[in-house]
Design a binder for these strands. Sequence first.
DNA 1: AGCTCTTATGAATCATTGA
DNA 2: GTCAATGATTCATAAGAGC
Lengths: 292, 292
Amino acid sequence: MEINTDIRLGDSKEILKDLPDNSVDLIFTSPPYADQRKNTYGGIHPDKYVEWFLPISKELLRVLKPEGTFVLNIKEKVVNGERSTYVMELIIAMRKQGWLWTEEFIWHKKNSFPGKWPNRFRDSWERLLQFNKQKKFNMYQEEVMVPMGDWAKNRLKNLSETDKKRDNSKVGSGFGKNVSNWINRKMAYPTNVLHLATECNNKNHSAAFPESLPEWFIKLFTKKGDTVLDPFMGSGTTNFVAQRMNRNSIGIEIVPEYYNMVNDKLETTKLILFEPEEDYEQIKTKRRKAIR
Amino acid sequence: MEINTDIRLGDSKEILKDLPDNSVDLIFTSPPYADQRKNTYGGIHPDKYVEWFLPISKELLRVLKPEGTFVLNIKEKVVNGERSTYVMELIIAMRKQGWLWTEEFIWHKKNSFPGKWPNRFRDSWERLLQFNKQKKFNMYQEEVMVPMGDWAKNRLKNLSETDKKRDNSKVGSGFGKNVSNWINRKMAYPTNVLHLATECNNKNHSAAFPESLPEWFIKLFTKKGDTVLDPFMGSGTTNFVAQRMNRNSIGIEIVPEYYNMVNDKLETTKLILFEPEEDYEQIKTKRRKAIR
DNA sequence: AGCTCTTATGAATCATTGA
DNA sequence: GTCAATGATTCATAAGAGC
């Protein structure tokens, strides 16, 4: 299978216009947060954030396939002792634009930034907002199943009366069936809380997320050969992960430095990818070695 | 110290008017969620939720002390395949009403029951929205510190070169000071993600939260002798915990059944509380025995 | 293997200074 | 005064090396 990784230099608002309608299966991105990263990006003021984002999300709505998904990683900062409301306003505005706000996942960051303040604890979570074009969308739940913890085994042994009642009352998916499924698979579906560390390999980009973050959503919402788009590419994490997972991808980046950095890495990676018969993990290891 | 637990039967919007200005240190509540619990509460429609809540939050703003805190436990439900936006709208509306939206804590529910839907995972988190009247409010961070892992003890013995460098470079707060803090503490500050189980003792009330939830916020935002208010008392968890922790409390409940249930329990508890020289844990155990 | 120990580091906040 | 920029402060975890 030929996998294409297409990166473009320029402003998302403009570049996106070149992409055809209904052509992308998953959009995964972490846009510049309001007033952050001033040295590299424009540094959008919280009050202007929604206004700035809406023209972009309008294009995203156009290029996304009807069964596709848009996952937006964002977190509002504290301004003047209060959490900003621009993310709330953005959700409301995007719904008016035609998006469905399907779900909000929580990224619980294991290792959050240090600090101590008299009236605030450390912020250790971010939002992962899931938007869709329609109620029916592609979701491959089995791909992100996780090994069951001990709690589940214990629970299976001693089941409360409430538990039994609940499941027996279900039609078509009785309790016994569920249990046998669990025992056979020893795997469970995850929840809408993701527990990942913030560690990332890209030291040159200030705001890179860990590879496991896009990886999880790419598994969940796409299959091999599908197309992933990141309109705020940054250090290219989304695109590298997509490539490793045999998904086509498009990345857009406005800062030439980052664009070039990703471009250079991409060349290195291509050489490795042409070696056949390797699975993800092997490629992952090799690539890392090659880059470092 | 004489602790008063004052429960009232009626509609919060009306009953709250009887409470004096600036008299409450902490408001902790979990209001009926939109369209949930139809059999017991009115079942407020998502579209009407903000409109319904604002007159109540207006009174809450009045009765709260300037240094007090309002913690609102809420989570929007899925309507027609989408998350409702009424919580977002409520936050924005409450800010216009004069509230400061200081922080959003996440309650990560450890043990949500396994379930499966074709396009959605189990919902295992809820919002705990912190509102304040002013930027300066009472917060007793030390009270909610958690035991540090074993790694910390080891670290204290042999300190890394990096640690030394970092700390030696500081002016005015040298290395030794920090270390002594650690040794004395053996405790760490939490973050804004709470990791609690959903277990709760009140089977008769459909939406009761675990005691550890109000307990955490009562510890964090009040001291002994302070006053806690729950305008949607339900099974009275907040009030029982407040009482056990030597805080005065007020509870308002519109459903006579719940009111009576709490009232009955309260009588039982009072007898126990009049026995002196007991700490929280002892009382807790006794009360539970007495009630069951 | 399992333990102990070392080391790196993360989209943060706040107070202060300067325009 | 308001607003923007700068610097100081800071904690807990995981991954990896060493025994």
